[in-house]
């Protein structure tokens, strides 16, 4: 078995119903895993951008690339892992803040990660943190020691740097 690698695919697709099902079906039908998935409309209303993180050996990654390309509704596929790219993910973390001492501490930690408080109630607060995978993992690990009530992440979004052609 060849070594497995994580790859980030940037996939431009027609903004139509059923497209996501075709992309997802390609993975489920072959037993490939999707680690993270983000889909949203772009500045061009006719096009959606999918950022998809997956893993597999070189042959599986090649198959994923080719099969994505084969879908009629897929306009362009880029394996971002082959070029220099930027990536970000946003996470919302809800934490219990039943005592004021703890709340202060959490806010200090949030500072370290440049987190923003976007909701505060007497016993809970919600933080928004943006970053790459390593930063989010570090943040989640720390906040976990305070007791995370709820967590939601966007999944990775990514693109090539500079003028490298998408």
């Amino acid at each position: 078995m060849n070594p497995e690698e994580r790859h980030i695919f940037s996939v431009m697709v027609e903004n139509r119903f059923g497209v996501l099902a075709r992309v997802a079906g390609l993975f489920s039908g072959r037993g490939f895993n999707i680690d993270s998935l983000n889909v949203a409309e772009t500045h061009d209303k006719g096009i959606s951008h999918i950022t998809l993180v997956t893993h597999g050996d070189a042959q599986i990654i090649e198959q994923i690339y080719q099969h994505l390309n084969r879908l009629i509704d897929v306009i362009e596929v880029t394996d971002l892992s082959t070029g220099t790219h930027v990536e970000r993910e946003l996470v919302l973390i809800k934490i219990a803040t039943d005592d004021p001492q703890k709340r202060t501490e959490i806010l200090q930690v949030a500072e370290v990660f440049r987190g923003r408080v976007i909701d505060m109630k007497p016993t809970t607060l919600v933080l928004e943190i943006t970053g790459d995978e390593g930063k989010l993992k570090a943040a989640i690990d720390i906040f976990n020691t305070y007791g995370i009530l709820e967590l939601a992440r966007t999944g990775k979004v990514a693109m090539l740097r500079g003028s490298e052609k998408q």
């Binding site: 042959q59 090649e62 080719q66 099969h67 084969r70």
Partner: peptide, 8 residues
Amino acid sequence: IDASCIGK
């Protein structure tokens, strides 16, 4: 004609 067939 099908790139996904090559090397599969």
